[in-house]
Amino acid sequence: MNAFFAWLQDTTLAHSVAHDDTLIALLSGLHLIGMTVTAGGALVSGLRLSGVLLTERPIREIAGAASRGMDFGLALSFATGFVLFVPRALSAAGMGLFQLKMALLLTAILFHVGWYRRLARAAAPGALAARLGGVLAIALWLAIALVGSLFILLE
């Protein structure tokens, strides 16, 4: 695995990003914008699914739209996060906080793609499934945002 990270760190992409502080700051800003949209989408859809927010409106109208927004935020965060990772792949991969963030992220992506998107866009999801899904989405994405915010400071 370390050989792969070392190779990644030696690619043209890694070298061109590594020495450009302005580009790194800009990518980091875009990464945070993506996180804001993803975590915000999780909050709005999760609160609707768990019966806390906008209960007078259909689940699909609120949670469906917010979960589509999460797809966009996630794509933006993922793309910028990867480019930020590449120049320091070896050191980042060895950090406990980064490993925790990746474990949470993998869980959240599998949960989002495998279940949550369908749940949020369903016409009438079961009450228990909706509550459970909503609470899990909020907990997972806020945890990722929190761990990520601690991680970016330790670069």
């Binding site: 804001t36 915000g40 909050l43 609120i62 739209a65 806020l142 915010s149």
Partner: peptide, 28 residues
């Protein structure tokens, strides 16, 4: 403190985004 600031951002702008997009006629 930065962690709390970022959590605040997720709540503040993360929810405001949907009001703004609705005002633009894009979602909901």
């Amino acid at each position: 403190v930065v962690g709390v600031h970022i959590m605040g951002l997720a709540f503040a702008v993360g929810t405001l985004v949907w009001i703004d997009l609705r005002l633009m006629g894009v979602v909901m």
